[in-house]
Design a protein around this nucleic acid. Structure first.
Lengths: 145, 145
DNA sequence: ATTTTTGCAAACCTTTTGCATGGAA
DNA sequence: TTCCATGCAAAAGGTTTGCAAAAAT
């Protein structure tokens, strides 16, 4: 059995399966590393895929809501996205090639409880992003992008 | 002995102590909760403080470099800042009033090592932001901003 | 037939930059 | 006196929106 595709998930969630959405789903599924909205817009333009800027942004919103894609805030302040599984997790992002790997909860849940007790806050959500260099890039001696 | 002020730290770092910088330092030190660049610009305009937009952005850069202020990426995608101590730490941010409290390392260092072993990445930096409601807001029954 | 989705272009908002002036050291 | 820093206004990015046309259900 194949892994469910982004397109499948869109359909299952009741979104119409339009050509632009299929195109973007394929683009994203095949993307290496993280990408920006503008990466998608430029690819669409260059390869004449016929997907407009507004559609790219609107689709990224939908995909983000469904948890199929996650928005990263890079240390540079740029916004990038990576495809991912729709479950709570965190990413280790390679600062050379931009690829991201998911890691599990890592005990942050318990940590969260400890912080609640220590500060009196009620914690709703958190965001953890880890940046470093992946094994491939390290081996290849690539610098930070 | 008083806590060193933002102005002190600027001077110690070799930056010139200009009127706009003193003004911004005071504004930031007295700010409740997080603020955006535009909050500072608007305050300057409204109160005729004579600090221009460019200077606000340039100063926030300096203060961020010195670690006197930290840039937050709110879940909404907005960029906000909070004053803080220049040491590695994380913030618990109140989603009602925007105030932030610092928390220590929380064992993330060890976690980082575990992730390196599990993924093969060499982790350089990370960003952890926790969002929730502070005791005051919870008590007052305030909703999420 | 109905409702969603799209592309385009313009609008918007935030952040950055060029440059002549002003101020700190 | 020498640079650093500032304000202004324009430019540059990135994202959103209004709307009529096109496509999915």
């Amino acid at each position: 059995m194949d892994a469910p595709t982004i397109t499948d998930a869109l359909g299952a969630a009741g979104y119409r399966l339009t050509a632009p959405r299929r195109t973007l789903a394929a683009l994203i599924a095949g993307w290496r590393g993280h990408f920006t909205a503008d990466d998608l817009v430029r690819t669409s333009t260059r390869r004449r895929l016929g997907v407009g800027r507004a559609t790219v942004f609107r689709s990224l919103d939908v995909l983000t809501d469904l948890g199929l894609v996650e928005r990263l805030d890079l240390p540079s302040g740029e916004h990038a996205y990576v495809a991912c599984e729709p479950a709570h997790h965190h990413h280790v992002v390679c600062s050379s090639c931009g690829r991201a790997q998911e890691v599990g909860d890592l005990g942050l849940g318990e940590m969260s409880g400890a912080i609640e007790r220590a500060t009196g806050y009620r914690i709703d959500t958190h965001r953890l992003e880890l940046f470093g260099q992946c094994p491939d890039c390290r081996r290849a001696g690539r610098g930070t992008a």
